[in-house]
Amino acid sequence: MTAPDQIGSVTPVRRRPYGLLLVATPVLLVAWLVIWPIISAVIQTAFVTTPDGGSAVSLETYSFFFSDGYSLSNLSMTLWTTGVCAALLLVVCLPIALYLRFSDSKVAAYVQGLAIFPMFVPSIILSFAFIRVLGPNGTVDLLLNSVGLPHIRSPYLTPWGPVIGLVWDNIPLTVLILLSGLGNVSNQAVEAARDVGAGKLALLWHIILPRISNSILVAISFAVLGIFSAFTLPYILGPAAPEMMGPFMQRTFRELLEPKTAITQAVVTFGFCIVFGLFYVRSVAKNRAA
C-alpha cells in the first residue's frame, strides 16, 4: 500500500458539538440578562419619539449629561474615587501580598486571615462600623476627647468616606489576585536575581513587578469595575453632592422619576467600565497565549 493510499483510507473524525452545547446555557443567559439590556439601554437612549409618533436618532440625553455641570461633577467624583481607591489598594495590598508570599513566619497565616476578613463583612455592616468608629462622636472622637485632644475632621459624608470604605471592602480580592500572581514568581528566580546583585528595590522593580504585571492589571480592573458602580458604601458614607454614579442613578430613577436620564447615566458608566473590562480580557488572553 502506498502512502497516499494510507492517507486516503483515513476516515475523517466527525466533530460532535457537545462542548458547544455545554457552554450554550451560560452564553444564552449572558446574552439575555446582560447583552440584551445593554443593547436595549443604548437603543432607548439613542432614539427619541417624534411628535408624529415615529422615532428618530437623537443623542440629546448624552448631550445633556455631558453639558450638565452636576452630572459631570458626579462623574468626575466617581472617577476620582475610583482612581484614589485603585492607587490606595495597590499601595496597601502589594506589601501585604509580598509579605504573605515570601514570609515563612507563622504570623503570615494570621495576616492572611485578617486581609481576607473584610470579604465576610457585608457592606452595610462595614458602613455602620465606619460611622461608629470614624463618624462624629465616634470611638476615635471619644478617645481623643478623653485625653483632652480636639475632635477629628470626620471623613463621614465627605469624598474620603467612600474611599476608606471601598478600599477596605476591596482588600481581600485584590490581595488574593496579587498573591496568586506572586505564586508564579519562583523562589529560584528571586534568588538568581539576588545572586547577580539585586537588592530589595531592584528585585521588586526589575523581577517581581514585571512578572506580576498581569495580575496587577486584573486586580485593578476588578477593583475599578466594582468601585465605579458601587452603591451601598457611597450612598451611606459619601456626601449628598456631588455623589458617585451609583447613588446618582438610583436617585435619578426613584426620586426624580427620570428613567431615561438614569439609563443614560448607566450607559455612560458602562462605557467607562467596559474599558477596564477590556483590560481584563486582554490580560486573560495574553496569559493564555503565554
Binding site: 529560584q188 538568581a192 539576588r194 545572586d195 546583585g197 523581577i207 512578572r211
Partner: peptide, 20 residues
Amino acid sequence: VPPEKRPTGMVFQSHALWTH
C-alpha cells in the same frame, strides 16, 4: 555577607531564568 554582595555566581537546577 548577603548573596547580592558575594563574589559568587550560582547556577540553579531549574535554570531560574527571568522569562520577561
